[in-house]
């Protein structure tokens, strides 16, 4: 059974009662919520994901519900729970769906240390994976969505999960998070993308999520090896510019994007250097998504530029 097979009211009712067991490869999330926005969001954006109405276990048992207290009467808030644990301060109630997405990221980044986890978007074409690491606002999600619209397979828009033993990237496809102007940009670039409701005034500005292509969800169990690491930077008004980056620089920048690099010690260092050594590394400036995606595609899939090695 997939989410798309359910009527929305059936989904909503189950979310309120026993919760749903949502399979988001490679993890299983048990989600409960009374919030309509959560049901709507899941129904739109997770349509292609397998789901069950009961389960013996889950990796994470999540509840999105209003916190206890009288504040609910004049300023409704919403809280994210992992079991009884509340890792965050409550947010305004209209952000409940985004809260679920952020909370799911938090769960994985803080509990799945068997993987080396990087704050990086990952897409793949012809069996070759492209990493797009970048701080918030660098434009990695927009670029990632642009490439996905051109037929690249989405492995992840936020978290690159690297299996240390093999150095392989484990796919963890999820709705792509878009901020502020990028919603309009993606809409213009690829109108076929389904984008969920826009929530204004979050701590990250306006936020919306784009539904991943069914193909990415169905082939999530195929992992990949990195071939390219491109550090994107959105620069207002600039021409798209792709420049080779020295391996050492790439390593240092990549390390800053790691959630749990310290925990992995020496092996973490080996995994990251391995990743950089096997990849062509670039820095990339762009302002127009159209131009950016075209330049990346022609360079990466056509003639590669000369790259300094580590």
């Amino acid at each position: 059974m997939r989410i798309a097979d359910l009527q929305q009211d059936e989904l909503q009712q189950t979310l309120c009662q026993e919760g749903i067991w949502l399979s988001v490869f490679p993890f299983l999330f048990h989600i409960k919520s009374n919030e309509l926005a959560v049901a709507t969001g899941i129904s739109q954006l997770y349509a292609d994901y397998p789901v069950a109405f009961q389960g013996d276990y889950a990796d994470f048992h999540i509840t999105i519900k209003p916190p206890a207290g009288v504040r609910r009467f004049w300023r409704p808030q919403i809280q994210f729970y992992l079991d009884r644990h509340r890792p965050f301060k409550p947010l305004p109630r209209n952000q409940s769906y985004a809260f679920l997405e952020w909370g799911m990221n938090w769960c994985v980044a803080n509990h799945m240390h068997r993987y080396l986890i990087l704050h990086t978007a990952v897409v793949e074409k012809n069996g070759k994976a492209l990493l797009l690491p970048g701080a918030s606002g660098a434009g990695k999600s927009t670029l990632c969505a642009g490439l996905v619209a051109r037929g690249w397979r989405l492995l992840s828009d936020e978290l690159a999960l690297i299996e240390p033993e093999s150095g392989r990237l484990i796919a963890f496809p999820r709705p792509i998070s878009l901020k502020n102007e990028s919603v309009g940009v993606l809409n213009a670039f690829a109108p076929e993308f389904l984008i969920g409701p826009i929530v204004n005034d979050t701590q990250k500005g306006s936020v919306a999520h784009a539904k991943p292509m069914a193909e990415s969800v169905h082939s999530a169990c195929n992992n990949a090896l990195a071939d390219w690491i491109v550090f994107p930077q959105y620069v207002d008004g600039s021409d798209a510019k792709l420049e080779p980056m020295a391996g050492g620089t790439a390593f240092m920048q990549l390390q800053e994007q790691a959630f749990n690099y310290q925990l992995h010690g020496k092996r973490g260092f080996e995994v990251l250097t391995g990743l950089v050594k096997r990849s062509d590394c670039y820095s990339f400036e762009y302002s127009s998504l159209e131009e950016g995606v075209s330049l990346l595609e022609s360079h990466l899939l056509g003639e590669p530029l000369a790259v300094a090695s580590l």
């Binding site: 299983l28 889950a58 990796d59 068997r114 310290q262 925990l263 992995h264 010690g265």
Partner: peptide, 20 residues
């Protein structure tokens, strides 16, 4: 089961890191 190993692997990595 795999889902148990995932949790315990993470814990083991945390323990090793903590010791260092």
């Amino acid at each position: 089961p795999e889902f148990v190993r995932r949790q315990l692997d993470s814990t083991m990595i945390q323990l090793q890191a903590q010791k260092r």
